Amino acid sequence: MLNLNVKNETSRLRAVVLGTAKSNGPTPTIEEAYDPKSLEHIKAGTYPVEADMVKEMEAVAAVLEKYDVTVFRPKIIEDYNQIFSRDIGFVIDDKFVEANILPDREQEFEAIEHVWSQVPKEQRIKLPEHCHIEGGDVMLYNDYIFIGTYRGADYSDYIIARTNMEAVEAMKALFPHKKIKSFNLRKSNTNPRENALHLDCCFQPVGKNKAILHKNGFLEEEEYEWLFNFFGKENVFEIDKEEMYNMNSNIFSISENVVISEKNFTRLNTWLRSQGITVEEVSYSEIAKQEGLLRCSTMPLIRD
């Protein structure tokens, strides 16, 4: 049995599900794109190829193994994208929540049955069907759960609106001991520089009390201000639109002192090191073309 425990984004990682790029399938058609960044690369003929993505993910697996983290991988489904394990579920405290994701992606969860089945039944949670939520929108900070959402009446018009307010309310009922705050995110089906696909595309805690933040990802300035003030000016690293587009807020913490980051994030990585954090640099720029990065492809199960 797995002894689940995740209370925040940065405590020492012991076990994780890392997605896989093997048998990723052909380049999607324009109609099949789930997000504006993939769409941009499908149109430009620069959509990533499987061999490059497999190589990028294996480099991450090697870093995790270097730090003695137990790494689970999904069972391979032929010709199917299984890179972004963060979307399909998440652990809060000792509970494993199966995310209600886009119906086209339900197989992805079945491919981690070997992990799910190791969790005691009373700790497995399935939300009602009308509650849509993805792990990229769920950010843990000890007593707090921060959730990215989209509150617009036109929610259903956006394939990139992944977490609804019904799910936020369901989470409040499930975790009454936590302070749950939701954030209205900026959405665009067509412009990746104006689209915060998930909360982790514009915000992530790092280290002991610091955060990476991108103002334009938030539709309501006061919600962004609340987060900024919560961490405090001296603890916030603000990223610009281009850095948001390149997914600078989507790094992944192995502990408060160690992160895995993309090697091209020069400004961010320099800042992290100035804060006493060890940066394990990997190349992840091909996977980034699908509007997801290191946090998106990892689902922590146990942190100390």
Rank of each mutant, 00 (worst) to 15 (best):
L4R: 09
K7S: 09
T10K: 11
R12M: 14
A21D: 06
S23Y: 05
P26C: 13
P28R: 07
T29L: 15
E32S: 15
E32P: 04
Y34N: 13
Y34S: 12
S38M: 08
H41I: 08
T46W: 07
T46C: 07
P48M: 11
D52A: 14
L64D: 03
D68I: 00
V71Y: 01
Y80A: 08
I83A: 06
I92G: 00
K95S: 11
P103T: 08
R105C: 05
E108H: 08
L127S: 04
H130D: 15
I133P: 05
D143W: 07
F146A: 10
T149W: 01
Y158I: 12
A161C: 13
R162Y: 07
T163F: 03
A173R: 11
H177Q: 14
K179F: 03
S182W: 06
N189Y: 05
N191H: 09
A196R: 02
H214F: 11
N216F: 03
E222T: 10
E223F: 10
Y224Q: 06
L227A: 14
E243V: 11
M247C: 08
F252N: 00
S253L: 09
V258I: 15
V259P: 03
I260D: 10
T266F: 07
N269Q: 03
R273T: 08
S274E: 10
S274Y: 03
G276C: 05
S283E: 15
S285L: 05
A288P: 00
L294S: 08
P300Q: 14
I302F: 02
